[in-house]
């Protein structure tokens, strides 16, 4: 009985003294990725072409292997170009990109490096709009 009374007397003191327990409360952390995956591009009104692109990815690209050295990849570049401009200009941009991809000498030092390990080659630099061309440092990895 004495021991019980003793514990009852002591316990409230310990409990009330430790008032900063809220610091150790459970944190609400969201672990879901906030960034797009490597080949994911925004899709705007290009559903028919997206189907073609998905078909190409499924039947050819996935079997052939991940060979494109650029980010975004050539197929994503084309789809994104269409959504940014029109099919005619996008085809010109894609033809240029395809030629650069086929470069026989593999002189890729002209491109900045993306964090994914590919060469960063954004659509914005090929829209013929001088003011939005961005030159990226070759010493840094682009996120």
């Amino acid at each position: 009985m004495k021991i019980v009374v003793f514990i009852l007397l002591i316990s409230p003191i310990f409990i009330s003294a430790q008032t900063d327990w809220y610091r150790w409360g459970k944190a609400n952390i969201n672990y879901s990725s906030q960034q797009n995956l490597a080949n994911e591009v925004p899709k705007k009104n290009v559903s028919a072409l997206s189907v073609l692109k998905d078909g190409y990815s499924f039947f050819i690209s996935d079997l052939d292997g991940d060979n494109c050295p650029f980010y975004p990849t050539c197929s994503s570049f084309y789809i994104e170009s269409i959504s940014e401009t029109n099919i005619f200009k996008a085809t010109l941009m894609f033809a240029d990109r395809f030629t650069r991809d086929s470069n026989l000498f593999k002189t890729h030092e002209h491109y900045p490096k993306h964090i994914s390990g590919r060469l960063y080659d954004p659509i914005g630099n090929y829209l013929l709009t001088d003011s939005i061309v961005v030159y990226y440092s070759r010493e840094e990895f682009i996120k």
């Binding site: 941009m93 894609f94 030629t99 061309v133 961005v134 030159y135």
Partner: peptide, 24 residues
């Protein structure tokens, strides 16, 4: 024609990127 047109277009963008590098 595909490669020709793409190259003509790409030459202009290549110079724009070159100029951006000069400024940078």
């Amino acid at each position: 024609a595909f490669f020709y047109a793409g190259n003509v277009y790409g030459s202009a963008t290549a110079v724009q990127n070159y100029n951006a590098g000069i400024k940078f």
